[in-house]
Design a protein around this nucleic acid. Sequence first.
RNA 1: GCGCGCAUAGCUCAGUCGGUUAGAGCGUUCGAUUCACAUUCGAAAGGUCCCAGGUUCGAAUCCUGGUGCGCGCACCA
Length: 733
Amino acid sequence: MEPRNAPEIFLKPYNPAEREPEILKKWEDSGYTNPDRCIEDGITDKDAETFSIVLPPPNVTGTLHMGHAAMLAVEDILVRYNRMRGKRTLWIPGTDSAAIATQAKVEDILYKKEKKTRHDIGRDALMQLIEQFTDESKATIINQVKKMGASLDWSRYAYTMDEKRNAAVSEAFIRMYEAGLIYRGDRIVNWDPKLQTTVSDDEIERVEQKTPFYYFQYGPFVIGTVRPETKFGDKYVVMHPADERYKAFEHGQKIELEWINGPITATVIKDEAADMEAGSGVMTITPAHSGIDFEIAKRHNLDIEQVIDERGILLPIAGELAGQHIKKARPLIVEKLKEKGLLVKVDEDYTNNLAANSRGGGTIEPQIKRQWFIAVNKPVKFPTGETMTLKEWMRRAVDSSETKIMPERFEKIYFHWIDNLRDWNISRQIWFGHRIPAWFKGDETKVQVESPGEGWVQDEDVLDTWFSSGLWTFSTLGWPQESDDLKTYHPTTVLETGYDILFFWIARMVLMSGFLRGEVPFRHVYLHGLVRDAKGRKMSKSLGNIIDPLTMIEKYGADATRLSLIIGASMGNDLKLSEDRVRGYKHFANKVWNITRFVLEQAPNAEAKINEADQKLLDEAHAIATTVSGHIDAFRLDLAADTIYHYVWHRFADEIIEESKPILKGEDAAAQASRVAALYQILLVFLKLLHPFMPFVTEAIWQQLPQPASAKGSGEAMKGSDLLMVAKWPLLR
RNA sequence: GCGCGCAUAGCUCAGUCGGUUAGAGCGUUCGAUUCACAUUCGAAAGGUCCCAGGUUCGAAUCCUGGUGCGCGCACCA
C-alpha cells in the first residue's frame, strides 16, 4: 500500500528528545494550565466542578530525583484527566526552603571554600549566601519539573519564604498564640549538639545499635544503664510502689552510698513509671537529660541538674571529668566505677535504639530548654464554633471521612500517631527560616510582627519548617486574604505525596487548616510508595544505583519515564524501577506513533458510513474509556494505564489493525470506507485516553492530524484550541 | 514492647462483591516475518495462590492459629 496521507514525520521512529521541547512550548504559550485562561477562552465552564492540587514543594537544595518524577507523573495524570473532563482544574507549583537542610548545605559550602563558620560571617552575610544559593537551585528544579510535562499553573508559583507566605506564617503564629495554643515553656526537648538546634519528635530517627549495657552497685541496689556519662547527678533512686522486693524502702528515705565522685546521699522515690520487669526494677534518674526522668522529677518536685552542655561536654558536676566530651568520658567513667568495685557486670550484646536527627544531624541529646510549643491537648474554639483540642480535630477529620487517606491502612497509622502525639516544639535555633514574631523586654513578651518599640528584642529563633508547610494548601491560595482562589479551590481535592511525610506534613496541614479555617485542607490523600532500584534497594549515591529521571527523559522520553513509574506501581507500595522498564515504554510510544502512521496512510472518505461491525469496535473503544475513567476516579492509575496500554497494543494494533488489512485491500468500497473512518475515530479516542499518561507523544501526534481542530473527534474537541491538552475526554459507555 | 501490612508463574505484580479452566508484563523456548513498527507477530513451557484448621454448595478471596518478610510508633533504666 502506498503511503497517501501520513505526514513525512511518521516515516521515522518517534524521537522524544526532538519533539518534547516544542510540545512543551506550545503548552506554555497556550496558558491553559491556568484555569482562568481556560474559562476566558470558553474551554472550561466557570461553574464547573473544581479540581485542585497543590504540588508538594520540592526542596530548593536538591535536583529532581525519581521520587519527584513519580509524584509529578501521578499528579499530572490526575490534573490532565480532570481538565479534559471539563473540570475547573488548578495545580499550584511551589518550592520549599527546607530550612535546616538548606542552611546546613550552605554552611558546608562556606566551610569548604573559605574555612569559615556562620559565626565568622554573621547572620546577615549568611542569609545573603543562602539567598544566592536558593535562587540558583530554584531555577534548576523548576526547569526539571517542567521537563516531566507537569501541567502546573506557574502564574501561581509560590515559595515557602516569599513575602506572601511570610505574612501568612506570622498571621498564623499570632492567631494561635492569642488563642492560647502556642506557648513558651521550659521543657525537655530533642537537642542536636551537631546542628545546635532543637528538632521535633517526628524528625528523630531511631537507629538500632549494639551498646554495652552496664550494671552498677548503687548502695543496696543494682542499676543498669547504657549511658554512664549521665550518672553523675543521680541522687534519686526510683522503684515501683507495688514492687515487693523493695517494700523495705520508703518513699523519701535517705540512703548514704558511695558513687562516682565519692559519698552521696540518695533519696528513694516510689513512682509507677518504674518498670518492675526491667532489670532489677530499680533505676536512678537524670531529669535534665531524659524525658521520662524529667516527668518523674516534676511529679515529685525533685532537683534538676544539667550534666551535659549544649555541645555534649560534661559540666563541673562531673568533677575531674568536667570538660570532657561524653563520648570520650564514657569509658573513663566505667573504669572509675570498676576501680571502686561498683561495676557489677557488663552485657556486651545489648541492642538499643539510638535517637538521631534524621535531617542529617547528630545524635540527639535530651535537654531542658525554653522553647515555643503548640499545645495539642488544650481545648480551643474553632472557626466552626466548636470547642475541642487539636488532637480531637485531627482525629475527626479522618474519622468522619471528610479527608480520606488512601491506601486506607495509613488511616490506622495516622490514628496511632495522634494517640502518641505530644506538644509540638516549633522553635529552632538556626538562622534560615521564618523568624518568630515575638519580642522580649525584660520579663515582658509581645507577639506581633513589628517591633513594639525601643528596647524590644526579637526572638532569635526561627520556626520549624513544617509550621509553614502546614499552611501550604491555603497560604498558596492567598490566605489570610479571603481571596477568590481560596473560596474556589479550598479545600483542595487531592494531596498526593510519599507516605514518609504522613505525619510531618499531612497531619500538620490538617491541624493548621482546622484551627485557622475550620475546614480540612484536602478531600483525598493519595500516598505513593518509594521508588527503589530493581532489587528493591533504596537508591543512594553510595550504592551507585541511582536512576536519574533527567537521563531517562533524554534517552527514552518523558512519556516512557512517566509510564514506567505508573504501571505496576500500586498505591502506597514501593516501586522497583529499572532502566529496562523505561526502555520498554519507549517502545510503546513508538508503537503509538506507528499505529498513527498506519491509520493516516488510509485514504479517508468524507461520506463514509460506519457499518454495524465497525460501530461495535467504536463502542468497544468507548467502553475502554469508561473503564479507564473508572480506574482514575478510584485513583487506580496503575490499572488505568495498564488497561489503555493493553488495549492500544494488544487489541487495537495486534487484532483490529491486522483484521483490517484484508478489508482495506479488498474490493468492498463501503466496508473499506467504514473501516478507515472507524480506525481514525478510535485513534482519536485512545489518543485522548492516553494523553494524561503520555502527554508528549499524544500531543505530537494530535498536532499532525490532518483535519482542522473543530472537526477532530466529530465535534468532541473543546472550543478555542487545537491542543489535545484541552480536548474533551471521550464519551463513556 | 505496642501497632500496621505483605506472602499468587523464574522476576515484578494484578486478581473488584466469595462464583467458569487463577491473569498480565518482563524473562525463557520454538516458529514466522522486512507487507505501519530502530522491529514486530504467533505459539509453548512455567502454579501446593506460604502452612494448618474453620465457615460455605463453592475460598487465592472471609475467620482463627502458625511461619517468613517488611514497615510505623516507643522516654525500657
